[in-house]
Structure formats: structure tokens, C-alpha cells
Design a protein around this nucleic acid. Structure first.
Length: 651
RNA sequence: GCCGACGUAGCUCAGUUGGUAGAGCACGGGUAUCGUAAACCUGGGGUCGGAGGUUCGAUUCCUCUCGUCGGCACCA
């Protein structure tokens, strides 16, 4: 008998006879480890827990202590769900696509034919069937089969057949068998269905087969699973709380903005409170840019359509642009979908010299995009938006320096807003789909390498993504998470060698020749005011830092008649100092007014009565605290000014 | 745009064999003038998203349409 060396999670190495099964190995070690072992890998590839181990190779057990085990559990849960569905008569003939684990759970793409879709109302029945199969504790067996066998096994599942046919010739095909259910599967599963105890189906939604909108749409059933009941409970709790954090809900509760059918879809109206937050952000970022040698301009939201034909945007994004306005004399005007051509016109207005470069043009530029109806979401995806836009025109050899200086400014801004949860994405073109992009392989190779080099020089962490570039060049995107877990781009820096060509931009070099071509950098630091505000709302859960808060100080006179004048005097002092303060004139009990100030998340609430009036004092209650403190107005003024100054510095 | 669900007062939501609607909060009026998370009384407010159809009669059933939500696709 050949002996095989097995390395265990605790580092121990033991010898076993070949032919032993991982599940026996796990059981043989110790009771505690056996309970924790969920899957096994041989030479880095998953093997079934119930399969025999061959005579050679490096073997490792994966236990519930490993983060990977949660993926294995969820992957197994998706199979469990598929098996349950097949056992329910009305889903007996359901076809299945793919059923992977994802970040917060798993899904399975299903197709039960038109008119027979799965609905959330079916979830209890499906879950009950899943629990039944868990009780049966069916062993999950994994083994290799031939292509012919595979095609025979899945003959009734056209999606699976397509997947099998797409596997390269010679590729190993493995299946996972649990009782009467067979899955096309690469492995990474729990030993038996009894391991999957704590799960919940979450939602059902449409999804194109293989992610292609030309393909048939399937029903994607989402679920999640955990090892412990408490973890599942906590996760469901988190999902519920995320809704409270959703900027659309807070926006309504705090009167920040609204959208209405009368105004139009994707066209939010900013109410005074939301407008204040936005104004603060706008003042901040414009000041910041002016201090970084940006030239702020105003350019029209409406321009000649030819501008976008020249830039190439018309060709690439016509579907998502508002239709041109035919002015009747051969001229077509277009609501601009982006600001670059406008800023290019600023550059082109006069001959430029290398001494003028880098030239940084910036604007809070309003633009319009006809986003598809299904994409519209609150403030984060809209049809009219104002971008904190900027374009730098730079000598090619200074490109990396300029890139780094923009990134530096971006990180300073993030610090001022306390934004810490983000990651950098280097967005390259999709090498398999190059017709979407400007056709110049050398340019792409070079600029993508430049981008990467600049990031490496700075020693900043990033990840790379193919197919995320703009048509004119690669970019650095800053990816953040929304309350509901979606990822979106907040800021971006884009390299552009194309538009300077298209618009024939030049500058006079040191050599006196006027045929030098600048490079362009497109950048948005806080992105669009809409999306950035949405992000801030969710990040702060509506409890804004004082410098951003719509109302900073709520003043409550104990008795409006007796203390109203004093309240208005205090308000005046605060307003003269540039602060946003309001005297509450509603004739209600104090408890009511305090409650209102707290639910509106006002940073400071002042209560003024006999005890304060004589001594020029205020009694202050800070947001989120129950405690109150009576201090002099002078001290309060110092406190709030320090509070505001801490965030609103521009350097 | 696609698949599914939903659309009743400003907001959150009730409203079943089809007989033109109700609560709480909010808002207006009144009483009380109150020291840190909801005083009490009272009033107004709805073409039940819109259009068409079936019916003696539609918030309810059907069709279309607009919008919202969950995803997918898209995102310069």
C-alpha cells in the first residue's frame, strides 16, 4: 500500500494509505476538527470529501475557521436550493444556469418558462423543502465524468449543455451528486447536505443568461447562508438596517430632495436642506481647486452637436444622449452629456505655450444623460447632474507628475470628508473587445503602463480591471460602496491621448515650434454633486458634521414670549459668525421640540430660559448625547467655530 | 432597455365574494405656557398613478401606459 502524506490545518503531517477518503481523514483526526472540516483540496484543487485520495499529492483540509469555508457553504446552499426546486412539482421541469457563491451569499439562475416564474411567495415552500433535504443529510459525492456522459446527464438542461459544449477539449468535467440531484461542478462543497443549516432566500430578480443583454432573461434567486444561526440573524438585521441608511429614505425624512413624476424621472429637486449640503461641498471643492491652480470657468450646458461628433461621444454614446434639437437652419444643438469638449474649447481659445502648461480648467459642469429608465436611482443615477469636472492639459513628459498631484489632492479631499472605505481600480480596455475603444494598440499599452507605474511609484494599493476604461483611454477609478452594498465610482482620473488629436490641440514648445501635442487628464474629485451627496448621506446616516449640516443650531426658547428676544439675539450672533441657526417658534412642549431637533439630527440644540438669559449663557445639547451643559455664549461660539473649522479648512 | 414586484392623503400603511375610502404622523384652528425624545380637543385634505375596456356600478377584474423598488444590462 502506498502511503500519502497529509498536512492538517494545525500543521501536523500524518501518513495515510492511498484510497482513504477526506471525510474519514477528518473524522480520524479529532472530533473537533472533524466538525470543522468542510472541504478538501489536493494540489490546490477541490476534491470531494467522500472521494478516495490518490497516492500522491499535497492534501489540505479546509475548516470552518477558514474564510473560504463560507464560500463553500454558500456554493453548497445554491445546489441545495436547486435540488429543492426540482422536488417541487411546479418547478420540476425548471432549467438551471449557473449557481455560484457571491460576496454576501449565493444565487442560482433559473428558467421555469414564461408565465411560471418563481416569486418570493414561493420562498417558504422552497425553504421548507431545503430543510427537508438537510435533514436527509445526503452525502455530496464528487467525481469526474466523460463529456458524453455529461451531455447525457444534462440532456434536459439546455443551459448546462451549452456550458459543457463550451468547455475546451480535454478539460476535466466533474459533477457533484447529492441523492437524486446532479450538478455540473468544479468542487468546493460541504461533505453532505446536513452541513447546510442556516440559510435564507432573499430575493428574485431578472438576469441575462451569461450576462449578455442579447440573451434570454432568467430568474436569479438570491439567498445567503451561514454556519451559525446568530450570524444569519445578524446578516438579515444588517440588510434591514441598510435600508434605513439608504439616501432615498433619509433624503425624504430630512427634506433634502425629492423626485416627482411631474418634474420627470431622474430629475431630482434639491430642497433647501439638501441644497445647503451641496452648496457647502461646492464651495469647499472650488476653493480647494483654486488653491491648486485650477482655472474655474462657466461653459454652456447646450452646445453645437458637432462638438460631440468631433469628440466621438456622439458615435459612442448616442443612445444615452438627449436627442439633438433641430434649429431648422442646419444647426443642431445638444444638451451636453459631458464637459470635456467645452473645456477643450477654453484651451483652444488662444495659442498656448509650454509655459502655460499644465493648464487646469475646472467647472461645476451641469450635464444631461438619457440614462436608461431601469438605471435611475435616487440621487446616485440621474439624468441631470453636475460634475466637479476638471481637465488638465499637460506636456506628455509631465503626465505622471500631474497624475500624482491630482491623486494627492483627491486623497486630501477624502481625508477632509472622512472617507476611508474605498479602493482604487485601474481600468483598462477589454483586450477581447477592442472595437469599443479608440484603435491604437501602442497608445493603450503605453498609457496603461504609465498609469500602473505612477500608482506603483506612489505605493498605493489598487486592483486592475479590464473592460472598464473610457473609449479614449485608461483611468483610475475610486470605488466606494453604497448603503445597500453596491459598488460605484466616486472619483476618477482618466488619461486621454485621443481628444487632443481629434480637436487638434497644440502648444508652442521650448523649441519654438507650435506643433506639440498636449495630453489631457480628465478628473472628477468629488464626482457629481448628486452621487457625492448621496454618498455623504449614507456615510453619515444623515447626521452630518457641523460644517455640512443644513441646520447647525436649533434654538428653543423655554417660553416664546418671555425668552424669544433673547433667542433671536443668540441667533443673530451665530448668523453673524456665518452659522446656520434657527429659533423654534412652534408653540409646543419642550420635549416635543427636543425630539424633533434630534430626529432631524441637528448638531447643536440650545435651550434658553430664565436660567440662561441673565448670564448670557446657553444650555447646549449636542446631537446624539442626552447630557446637557450650560455654558457662556462666548464658550459655545468658540466650540462651534472650532467644530466647523476643523472640517472646512482648505489648504 | 429587460425580468419580476409594487403604486390608496404630504409620509407610513389598513381596506376580499365589485356598491365611489380609513388610521397614525404631518398640516390648520383652539385650550394649556410647559426646562430636554411625542400635551389635549378639533378641522381640512384623496378623480385609490394615468388612459381605455368589462359591468347597472370598478380602488377592487382585464388591457395598455407612466412611475417606483429589487436585480440584470448600460455607465463618457
Amino acid at each position: 500500500m502506498a502511503a500519502i502524506q497529509l498536512t492538517f490545518p494545525d500543521g501536523n503531517v500524518k501518513e495515510y494509505d492511498a484510497g482513504v477518503k477526506p471525510i474519514d481523514v477528518a473524522n480520524g483526526i479529532s472530533k473537533s476538527l472533524a466538525k470543522k472540516s468542510v472541504s478538501a483540496k489536493l494540489d490546490g484543487h477541490y476534491v470531494g470529501m467522500n472521494d478516495e485520495i490518490p497516492a500522491s499529492g499535497q492534501f489540505e483540509l479546509i475548516t470552518t475557521d477558514d474564510a473560504e469555508s463560507l464560500d463553500i457553504l454558500r456554493h453548497s446552499a445554491s445546489h441545495l436550493m436547486a435540488q429543492a426546486l426540482k422536488r417541487i412539482p411546479k418547478f420540476a421541469n425548471m432549467h438551471f444556469g449557473v449557481g455560484p457563491y457571491i460576496e454576501n451569499g449565493f444565487y442560482y439562475d433559473t428558467d421555469n418558462g414564461a408565465g411560471n416564474q418563481v416569486s418570493v411567495d414561493d420562498f417558504p415552500e422552497i425553504e421548507a423543502m431545503m430543510h427537508k433535504i438537510v435533514k436527509e443529510n445526503l452525502p455530496i459525492l464528487s467525481h469526474e465524468i466523460s463529456r458524453e456522459e455529461a451531455l447525457k446527464t444534462f440532456a434536459n438542461d439546455p443551459y448546462k449543455v451549452e456550458l459543457i459544449n463550451d468547455l475546451p477539449e480535454g478539460e476535466k468535467i466533474t459533477v457533484a451528486v447529492q441523492g437524486d440531484h446532479v450538478e455540473l461542478d468544479k468542487g468546493g462543497l460541504v461533505p453532505s447536505t446536513g452541513w447546510i443549516k442556516h440559510f435564507k432566500l432573499i430575493s428574485v430578480a431578472g438576469a441575462y443568461w451569461r450576462g449578455d443583454s442579447d440573451n434570454h432573461m432568467m430568474q436569479r434567486i438570491y439567498g445567503t447562508a451561514f454556519w451559525k444561526a446568530a450570524d444569519l440573524e445578524a446578516d438579515l438585521q444588517r440588510r434591514a438596517e441598510a435600508k434605513e441608511r439608504d439616501h432615498r429614505n433619509i433624503g425624504r425624512d430630512l427634506d433634502l430632495f425629492f423626485t416627482s413624476q411631474e418634474v420627470g424621472s431622474g430629475l431630482p429637486v434639491w430642497l433647501p436642506n439638501g441644497a445647503t449640503i451641496r452648496r457647502q461641498v461646492e464651495r469647499y471643492i472650488v476653493d480647494k481647486e483654486l488653491n491648486n491652480d485650477y482655472l474655474h470657468v462657466y461653459t454652456p450646458v447646450l452646445s453645437n452637436l458637432n462638438l460631440y461628433k468631433t469628440s466621438g461621444h456622439w458615435d459612442h454614446y448616442r443612445e444615452d444622449m438627449f436627442p439633438p434639437m433641430d434649429m431648422g437652419d442646419g444647426e443642431y444643438l445638444e444638451l451636453r452629456p459631458m464637459n470635456c469638449p467645452s473645456h477643450i474649447m477654453v484651451y483652444k481659445h488662444k495659442p498656448r505655450s509650454y509655459r502655460d502648461l499644465p493648464m487646469r480648467v475646472a467647472e461645476l459642469g451641469m450635464m444631461h444623460r438619457y440614462e436608461k429608465s431601469g438605471a435611475l436611482t435616487g440621487l446616485s443615477r440621474v439624468r441631470e447632474m453636475t460634475l466637479n469636472d476638471g481637465h488638465t492639459f499637460v506636456e506628455p513628459e509631465k503626465l505622471e507628475d500631474e497624475f500624482k498631484s491630482i491623486l494627492k489632492m483627491m486623497m486630501e479631499v477624502y481625508e477632509d470628508f472622512n472617507i476611508t472605505d474605498y479602493r482604487f481600480r485601474l481600468s483598462y480596455r477589454d483586450p477581447k473587445n477592442t472595437e469599443k475603444y479608440f484603435d491604437d494598440d501602442e497608445m493603450w499599452e503605453k498609457s496603461q503602463a504609465q498609469l500602473k507605474r505612477a500608482m506603483d511609484d506612489l505605493g498605493v494599493d489598487y486592483f486592475e480591471a479590464e473592460g472598464e476604461a473610457a473609449f479614449y483611454g485608461p483611468k483610475l477609478d475610486v470605488q466606494t460602496k453604497t448603503a445597500l452594498g453596491g459598488e460605484e465610482t466616486l472619483s476618477t482620473i482618466q488619461l486621454d491621448f485621443l481628444l487632443p488629436e481629434r480637436f487638434n490641440l497644440t502648444y508652442v514648445g521650448e523649441d519654438g515650434k507650435d506643433n506639440h501635442r498636449p495630453v489631457m487628464l480628465h478628473r472628477g474629485i468629488v464626482g457629481t454633486m448628486e452621487r457625492f451627496t448621496a454618498y455623504l448621506i449614507e456615510m453619515y446616516k444623515g447626521a452630518f458634521p457641523t460644517w455640512l449640516a443644513p441646520l447647525q443650531v436649533e434654538i428653543i426658547p423655554v417660553n416664546l414670549g418671555a425668552h424669544g428676544d433673547y433667542a433671536r439675539k443668540i441667533q443673530k450672533q451665530l448668523q453673524d459668525a456665518g452659522l446656520r441657526a434657527q429659533v423654534e417658534t412652534k408653540d409646543a412642549k419642550m420635549g416635543y421640540l427636543i425630539r424633533e431637533a434630534q430626529t432631524k439630527k441637528v448638531p447643536y440644540t440650545l435651550v434658553l430660559g430664565d436660567e440662561e438669559m441673565g448670564q448670557d449663557n446657553v444650555t447646549v445639547r449636542r446631537y446624539g448625547q442626552k447630557a446637557t451643559e450650560t455654558i457662556s455664549m462666548v464658550d459655545f461660539m468658540k466650540e462651534i467655530q472650532a467644530d466647523v473649522a476643523r472640517y472646512s479648512r482648505v489648504d
